[in-house]
Simulated assay, not measured.
Amino acid sequence: MPNSHQSYPKVCLLLHGFTGGPFEVEPLGSHLQSKGYTVSIPVLPGHAGDDRHLGEVTWQQWVEEAEREAGRLAETYGSFDLAGFSMGGLIAAYLASRYPVRRLVLISASVIYLSPKRFATEMWEEVRRKNWSAFYKVQTTPLHAVLQFMMLVRSLRREIGRVQVPTLVVQGERDEIVHPYSARYLEQNLGGEVQVKYFSNSRHLIFLDIETKEVCEAISAFYEGDDNEAEKKIRS
């Protein structure tokens, strides 16, 4: 149940995923804005809307851009809520132990990937639907960027155990990119209080799927829950 006397700033930083852009999390941003939140969705270097090519940047630059915005929000508002989608989830976990994050949401976080067999099955489903966008993305993503992404995953996965703030883990059970077991991994390895919500009909782009409304409502309900524990974590 939401606090009757809200004392925290309604501010949220949203981080998009690898090769994606703000469009991946904008439905959540719009939903939070309708609840009175100030929402920030930075574009990570080399991604949508950036003049630099994805093959010319490093994983450290993705983290540094997210840190710049986290620092700005911390200086302006004192504390903020945070959500990261896919690769953005790992970056969000890194930020959560270094900035005054009140509550954290990890959405389809890039921790464990699908087996080749399941990936092939999902790709065959895309062929049947005549959806060629997934193949186009695989063919056009620079190898340099893929290697940078792999280095980011290896470097930031160790940050998960350092997270002490209340965290909601969101995972689509039909995710064709990130294995649903990732949610279990996060539940077992995050350092603070953890809630996990699975969405049985959702694929990887969970905010562009059929359960978008339910996912957004679950996240806003988590943010608007009793903030006593979250405030305690920030002050400690």
Rank of each mutant, 00 (worst) to 15 (best):
N3M: 05
K10E: 13
L14S: 02
P22K: 07
F23P: 01
F23K: 09
V25K: 05
P27D: 10
S30W: 05
H31A: 09
Y37V: 00
T38N: 11
P42A: 10
P42E: 14
P45Q: 12
P45H: 15
A48G: 08
L54G: 06
G55S: 07
E56Q: 12
V57P: 04
V57Y: 13
W59Q: 01
Q61L: 11
V63C: 05
E64N: 11
R68P: 01
R72Q: 14
Y77C: 02
S79A: 13
D81S: 08
A83M: 03
F85M: 13
G89Y: 02
A93W: 01
A93C: 08
L95Y: 07
L95A: 06
Y99L: 03
R102I: 01
M123W: 10
E125T: 06
V127S: 10
K130N: 13
N131H: 12
N131T: 06
F135C: 06
T141S: 00
P142Q: 03
V146H: 02
M151P: 01
L156Y: 03
L156E: 03
R157W: 09
E159A: 10
T167Q: 14
L168W: 13
V178R: 04
Y181Q: 15
S182M: 09
S182A: 12
N189H: 15
N189D: 05
Q195N: 07
K197N: 11
Y198C: 06
S202E: 10
F207D: 05
L208V: 01
D209L: 11
I210N: 11
V215I: 14
V215H: 10
C216W: 02
C216P: 04
S220M: 10
A221G: 06
E224N: 05
D226V: 01
E231C: 04
K233D: 06
R235L: 14
